[in-house]
Simulated assay, not measured.
Amino acid sequence: MNPTIKDVAKHANVSIATVSRIVNGLPGYSEETKKKVQQSIEALGYQPNAIARGLINKRTQTIGVLFPDVSGMLSSEVLQGIENAAHDGGFSVIVCNTTSSGKRTVKYLRLLQEKRVDGIIFASEDVKEEYYKIFQEMKVPVVLVSTASAKYDLPFVRVNDFDGAFQATEYLIQKGHKVIGMIGGSDEDPIAGVPRMQGFQKALESNGLIYTKNHITKNEGYRFQNGKESLPQLLKELPSMTALFAASDEMAIGAMSAAHQLGIRVPEELSIIGYDNLKIAEMCYPPLTTVSQPLKDMGQTSGEMLVSMIKGEKQEAKSRYMPFTIVERQSVSDFHDK
């Protein structure tokens, strides 16, 4: 038979009302009493009724997280940070895979509205008007991670992608490379696609190097296959290219695979730098030099921000640009003119 709140009260030698206040995060007890009740809960294996608890504190202790691609390596690292923060704050996480589909995103937002989640973390996608209207209807805090909105005033946690791309390109320039190409995202992607391509272009122009539209191949996605298919196209446009900046690690590793098939040695004949610093970046050969986004920390920070807003500890959260670094491995070498 499962233990009840009455059993916990008897075990801790306190009233049922005191146990209820502690379980539901309400005030009116000492730290010593709280500790004693928590020990009794643990000893008896008591599980509070989530529905009843929600009726008392008006919360379901759940947060909704929407990703455009939960199978991506980037998403898994961000999600790990979010779940750590949610668990520490006493919340559970409902994860929704939107596949960057507007209809599916709306469907999941309606589902989260029905589930009465206490807050939402919205990741890696542009906030459309139809999404924002549902956010307002739900009247719960919303935090963006690995994205931002120019149109709506929503707090975000992300890296400055323009600066990251600029520094990645300048790193290659400092290694002596002058003909540098880029495997980029899409012009339709204002979150990562456009700013990373703009950062690349600005770095070339700021250092007096030639830039044309042929210096970039554009893609709808950031996956391995996009990089693998893009490298041969880029080499046709820039046959003298000695260095490459890829807008994601998966793209960079795809390009390395294509280079191997074409008999091009990395980094001796082609230097490659990626973006993200996924775990796979140090597992490939040669290990990938890349722009490191603190993905887990970004998830953790966004989760902590949302939990604080839900609990009323913060009325408004301040957006945060997280620091990035270039992690040097073995896929980039100094340029030596033959």
Score class of each variant (00 low, 15 high):
Met1Ser: 15
Lys6Val: 14
Val8Cys: 02
Ile16Pro: 06
Ala17His: 13
Val19Asn: 01
Val23Cys: 01
Ser30His: 06
Ser30Arg: 11
Ser30Gln: 07
Glu32Phe: 02
Lys35Val: 12
Lys36Phe: 09
Val37Arg: 03
Ser40Leu: 02
Ser40Ala: 15
Ile41Lys: 00
Leu55Met: 13
Ser75His: 11
Ser92Asn: 15
Cys96Ile: 10
Thr98Trp: 06
Gly102Gln: 12
Lys107Leu: 13
Ile121Trp: 05
Glu130Lys: 07
Ser146Phe: 09
Thr147Met: 09
Phe156Gln: 00
Arg158Thr: 15
Phe162Gly: 10
Ala168Pro: 05
Glu170Arg: 14
Gly176Ile: 03
Gly181Ser: 09
Gly185Phe: 04
Glu188Val: 00
Ile191Ala: 08
Ile210Val: 11
Ile210Thr: 15
Ile210Met: 11
Ile210Tyr: 06
Tyr211Arg: 03
Ile216Glu: 13
Arg223Cys: 14
Phe224Arg: 11
Gln225Cys: 03
Gln225Asp: 15
Ala252Met: 01
His260Leu: 14
Leu262Phe: 03
Leu270Thr: 02
Ser271Tyr: 01
Asp276Gly: 01
Met283Val: 10
Thr289Trp: 04
Thr289Arg: 01
Ser292Leu: 14
Asp297Met: 09
Met298Gln: 11
Gly303Glu: 12
Glu304Gln: 15
Met305Phe: 10
Glu316Tyr: 12
Ile326His: 00
